[in-house]
């Protein structure tokens, strides 16, 4: 009886909407399809440090963002690895660019990805399609300084055990 009461309770509640993230159920749901945590997502901020050895040879090494003063270029790298046992697809990575920095033009990278940008967080498009309004209210092409988001859409699947990287450089204001 207890369970029926519970069922009644549930059915009597009008669930008008379900938070989108949890709207997982479709017609033929298999419990094995839900595999949270198949991808490990790592995001680091680094800067390049030049060292000159006794022979005068210059080596460039990456260290965690360090001595970060205005004007320093920070390299953000996102590494995603398929730690599950099935291929992962439809991979999309989004990044709301950090405040107090300016994106370095031409620095956005991502092997095997389609890269789009946004100036408002709503519309994502390639650079040539993005516009902002000038002081007169006219539409003018958006520049790197106007971008607020970057989106990488990974093409195809990431096989189990494989990883890939995307990233960009940002200069501290």
């Amino acid at each position: 009886m207890k369970t029926l009461t519970l069922l009644n309770l549930i059915l009597s509640l009008s669930i008008a909407a379900v938070p989108a993230a949890y709207a997982q159920q479709t017609g033929a749901q298999q419990s094995s399809a839900r595999q949270p945590g198949s991808i490990e997502l790592k995001h680091v901020a680094e800067i390049e440090v030049k060292t000159t050895d006794a022979k005068g040879k210059v080596t460039i090494k990456r260290t965690p963002a360090d001595k970060a003063i205005p004007g320093t270029e920070v390299i953000y790298t996102t590494t995603f690895k398929n730690v599950g046992n099935k291929p992962a697809g439809n991979i999309v990575i989004n990044n709301l660019l950090p405040l107090h920095t300016t994106l370095v033009a031409g620095s956005v990278f991502g092997t095997n990805t389609d890269i789009t940008y946004s100036v408002d967080g709503k519309i994502f498009a390639t650079p040539n399609k993005l516009t902002v309004k000038d002081q007169a209210g006219k539409d003018i092409p958006a520049t790197v300084k106007d971008y607020t988001h970057i989106r990488w859409s990974f093409k195809g699947n990431l096989a189990a055990g494989k990883s890939s990287q995307v990233g960009f450089r940002a200069k501290i204001n």
């Binding site: 993230a21 790592k42 953000y76 709301l96």
Partner: peptide, 28 residues
């Protein structure tokens, strides 16, 4: 200065929970 990357993906065509990044690697 803080930054986070978020990733969405699907396995077997089924959308999986969104993952947020961490400096050491985050899986859920």
């Amino acid at each position: 200065i803080s930054n986070l990357a978020t990733l969405t993906y699907a396995v077997g065509g089924v959308t999986q929970p969104v993952i947020g990044s961490s400096a050491t690697g985050n899986i859920a």
